[in-house]
């Protein structure tokens, strides 16, 4: 997993947009992640960020997630994290954000929620 290329892909599943992240989210490309999340929130009312293939996330990556969450809440949109990997969960816990974000085990549940 450590060798996975960084990747950020947005998929539209009906009314739901899923931003899939891969690799290590750090300062070198967290701005790109932030843009993708905000763009998704601009395009649809329900957005999820899929994190199962993310092996590392730093504070700038967490900041991008928080910004998406706050933006969605301001416009009564739905925003959640999907399939959070263990390393990402550890950082969310450290930032005391694990109870703040809606977290779903998979995209199906997220779409239904």
């Amino acid at each position: 997993m450590n060798t996975a290329e960084n990747e950020c892909v947005s998929e539209t599943l009906g009314d739901y947009i899923l931003v899939r992240l891969r690799g290590e989210v750090d300062l070198s490309w967290s701005q790109q992640v932030r843009r993708a999340i905000l763009d998704a929130l601009g395009a649809g009312s329900k957005v999820g960020v899929e994190l199962s293939q993310v092996s590392y996330i730093d504070s700038s990556g967490i900041a991008a997630l928080v910004e998406g969450f706050q933006s969605a809440r301001g416009k009564s949109q739905q925003f959640g994290l999907v399939a959070v990997s263990k390393p990402v969960m550890a950082v969310l816990q450290l930032a005391r954000l694990d109870k703040v974000f809606p977290i779903f085990p998979d995209a199906e549940t997220a779409r239904a929620g």
Partner: peptide
């Protein structure tokens, strides 16, 4: 850490 905002983490 108890405040939820993007920066300064």
């Amino acid at each position: 850490l108890s405040e939820c905002r993007p920066g300064g983490l």
